[in-house]
Nucleic acid binder design. Sequence first.
DNA 1: TCATGTGAAGCAGTTCACAGCG
DNA 2: CGCTGTGAACTGCTTCACATGA
Lengths: 234, 234
Amino acid sequence: MPPHQQPPGSQGSEGSRSRATRAETGQASTVSPLTVNRLSVYLRSLRQLREQGIEKVSSQQLARRFNLSSTQIRKDLALFGEFGTRGVGYDVLELAEHLEKLLALGRVHRLAIVGMGNVGTALARFPAFNSGSFQVVAGFDNDPSKIGRRIGPIVVRPTSELVTSIRESGAKIAILAVPADAAPAALDALHRAGVRAVLNFAPVTLPSTSRCRIKNVDLRIHLEELSFFLDHPE
Amino acid sequence: MPPHQQPPGSQGSEGSRSRATRAETGQASTVSPLTVNRLSVYLRSLRQLREQGIEKVSSQQLARRFNLSSTQIRKDLALFGEFGTRGVGYDVLELAEHLEKLLALGRVHRLAIVGMGNVGTALARFPAFNSGSFQVVAGFDNDPSKIGRRIGPIVVRPTSELVTSIRESGAKIAILAVPADAAPAALDALHRAGVRAVLNFAPVTLPSTSRCRIKNVDLRIHLEELSFFLDHPE
DNA sequence: TCATGTGAAGCAGTTCACAGCG
DNA sequence: CGCTGTGAACTGCTTCACATGA
């Protein structure tokens, strides 16, 4: 994944003998996005094991089953506490719950989508964005022919209503799926609407601020990466 | 996502200047995906400058304008040759062309999409996947109600025809947009169809091989990353 | 005994600082 | 002079190796 932004760092996190972990002291992020992404992968894997009725798993079993590194699993988890039992491994159900809590998936995050083109429309209907901890509650576009149309769980509203509508909805996460040249203005509106995190599909690298974290996802770049490695094999 | 891959390779490309660079010596990839992704970003930026009629640019101007690091731009480019003029900077048009060549964007890559659900459908219609160097030429699904339907540039075909159809089309890149449990079988079929690169949207981490490079993109994980940092600010 | 949790080592990616050249 | 290109320093991520404890 291409990490376009870097996380800020401030706190030293010495791993000392006591039970004082990051989670318990209340101190937050010297945690890198890479680690956080892996936590999601671990959770995804544990959910699969849970569905299969598997109750215990060691880091090595997880690693083999899901193409991961057992050391890295343990190191990543160690940032947040001690979740395993020596000589045994991890309790699948319990660790999954810990990860859900860590990733703040215990509550519902309302999502607003800006730009109801191909991508915006697909994401409005996308199950992963409309289940569990996520729920699409608003969608915006400038195109008059789209206003008022029902797409997935929402009815498209004009961008002029974006700020007030998002304020009312309480959505703190937005998906930005507008053309590149419209992105800066849209982002500015999202700031004013109180949005704190943005998943940006517009082909521009928008900078994170302390007030609003941005994750840039450019699908064309992914294709170009594959194109490069096709011509520069191995 | 653990990127383990590094071995050498061979690629011939005529050099342009004095010193022996990777491109000239014929050796290929010790190049990291991170670097390649940045090349795409540089190209995207240069195209924007080109449209504005700007002819020369220094690494520092690029960096300021597009939130990049000037040193990193120079280091990244240095892997492939010497494209700038000391005391001046880079020729926008020329550098863009070099990057297009490096990223193998000088020819059309035909794409096959497996799974015409929300994501597959959106990508079939997605401009970035149907312009310039990319072109969607086939789409597959198991759902009988979808077979025969025209979506964007393609007509949906049954998955049973996947191998022969992709072979005929000559597509070497596939987009995998099926449910997680269907992904392994679909990938196997893609291997048999001669596909060399896969953009995987299924929520499983599929491993790359030397025969077929895989780029895993899990949109839910992106959301979960934002969710985490929402609750663990700064 | 077995697998976790963790300092220490190793490696990759980024930034610094400046030599070299137009 | 200014900007590129680049060894050297640095930061941070990953892997190793083993002490620790159920």
